[in-house]
């Protein structure tokens, strides 16, 4: 049994300690907005926040999240009114959309520390999050739009 806080809610799941956090979220808790892409922290599709920091849930044993606060896309503050989500929708960043929740979770940690990032800062921060549709330029635009508070 592992106890952790997910989206401000304390939960206890019957998972082995070495189960990747990704499967605890998706299968034990039904939070399928966090995606499986590679299983080796190489694509960013599973990005969530652990105590506010962006982590790859596919490569993080659930035991390491025990007693800590996990935030997934479902728990992103403001939901549809979150500035990043609003910018993502306004810019229409997603194409297939599969990687986009991970992109948004990754982007959120950039804006938390760099409120007005440059294109180069954004590209560097987002470099671990693959988008096969190659929506990278739209992701830059959406992050800058969210930063402007538009």
């Amino acid at each position: 049994m592992i106890s952790l806080t997910v989206n401000d809610r304390p939960v206890t799941v019957a998972a082995e300690p070495d189960t990747p956090l990704l499967w605890v979220l998706r299968e034990h808790l039904g939070l399928t907005g966090t995606k499986y892409g590679c299983g080796v922290a190489a694509c960013g599709a599973c990005t969530v926040h652990l105590d506010g920091a962006a982590v790859r849930a596919c490569a993080l044993p659930a035991s390491e999240a025990a007693g800590r606060a996990v935030t997934t896309i479902e728990g992103l503050p403001g939901g549809a009114q979150n500035p990043l989500v609003r910018a993502w929708v306004a810019v229409e960043a997603p194409q297939c959309g599969y990687c986009q929740t991970g992109q948004i979770m990754q982007a959120a940690t950039l804006l938390a520390r760099t409120p007005q990032p440059s294109r180069a800062e954004i590209l560097a921060h987002m470099d671990g999050n693959l988008c096969r549709c190659a929506s990278y330029n739209q992701i830059v635009e959406a992050i800058q739009q969210a930063a402007r508070g538009a």
Binding site: T34, E74, V85, V89, G97, T101
Partner: peptide, 11 residues
């Protein structure tokens, strides 16, 4: 607006 986009941004 694309019909599919908001749900994708929200997971």
């Amino acid at each position: 607006p694309r019909h599919d986009v908001p749900a994708k941004a929200l997971g």
